[in-house]
């Protein structure tokens, strides 16, 4: 009994540690005070100011469009690559897997500065396109690693059965293989999408003047001093993620039934 209580207490403390900062951000986003120290009444003013801040809205737009485009592109390239890798001879497979692990193992900062060096060397104009290229680069390996296990589990006779029944290799892929590995493809896409959304390091080095993502915007805002606008932004993002998660959870349990 005492043991059980201790465990519950320990878990409780850890969760408080995890969520206290987020909770504080949320509470303070409603605090009507210029000197953020103490509570001086409820307000929605920071939310209004946030909405009026064009740079934040454009950063939000960039973040989402880049995340969607990069993860889509990475999903297509990565899924094709995973199928190719699966059919390779062992040695070629080993080479490709090592290349795939490179961006996974490489620290983000090294990926960031090395891509910066590449873009400068190629005389690319730093901005939206370079950001997109960089995001696709670090996303592809995660798609490959998510899709590969599904391909390994695939019954090799399924494709043959499709061909046998008159499907061309392309038809066999879209009608049989893809539906079978879809779970892995979706996982890969979601993984890539969240990595893109959350990325700061790589974006920080590969973007040009005037093109911000949310992370970069927040970073520069913290440099200017702490603003309650960031609190408002965090609250919106957190609630957004939370409701998305609850919807997904609900859907998953609905499907199970």
């Amino acid at each position: 009994m005492v043991k059980k209580l201790c465990k519950a207490a320990y878990a409780g403390i850890i969760y408080v540690f995890l969520y206290l900062p987020i909770l504080v951000l949320i509470v303070y986003s409603f605090n009507d005070s210029k000197y953020r120290g103490n509570w001086s009444g409820f307000t929605l003013r920071w939310y209004q100011e946030l909405m009026r801040d064009r740079t934040i809205i454009s950063a939000l737009y960039n973040t989402f469009t880049i995340a969607i485009l990069a993860s889509l592109l990475a999903t297509v390239i990565g899924t094709a690559a995973a199928i190719g890798i699966h059919h390779m001879k062992p040695r070629a497979k080993a080479v490709f897997m090592n290349i795939t692990y490179l961006p996974v193992m490489n620290p983000d900062i090294v990926i960031g500065i090395s891509l910066l060096a590449l873009f400068v060397w190629l005389k690319f104009k730093l901005g939206y396109i370079t950001l997109l290229l960089a995001h696709v680069t670090f996303n592809i390996p995660y798609v490959i690693l998510a899709v590969l296990p599904k391909i390994y589990q695939l019954n090799p006779h399924l494709e043959e059965a499709a061909l046998d029944l008159g499907a061309t290799p392309l038809q066999a892929f879209f009608k049989v293989i893809l539906p079978e590995i879809m779970a892995g493809v979706v996982t890969g896409f979601l993984l890539a999408f969240t990595l893109s959304l959350d990325d700061f390091m790589v974006s920080f080095f590969t973007t040009g003047s005037g093109v911000n993502t949310l992370s970069i915007k927040i970073y520069s805002m913290t440099k200017l001093g702490v603003s309650p606008k960031i609190n408002a932004l965090s609250t919106i993002l957190f609630i957004g993620v939370l409701s998305l998660l609850i919807i997904l959870q609900q859907r998953a349990s609905n499907i199970k039934e």
Partner: peptide, 20 residues
């Protein structure tokens, strides 16, 4: 001639039915 152009069909070991 690839399998999809042959007038031959196969019943596979363990059936290979499309699970989806």
């Amino acid at each position: 001639v690839p399998p999809y152009q042959r007038q031959i069909n196969t019943v596979f070991q363990k059936y290979a039915l499309f699970p989806h």
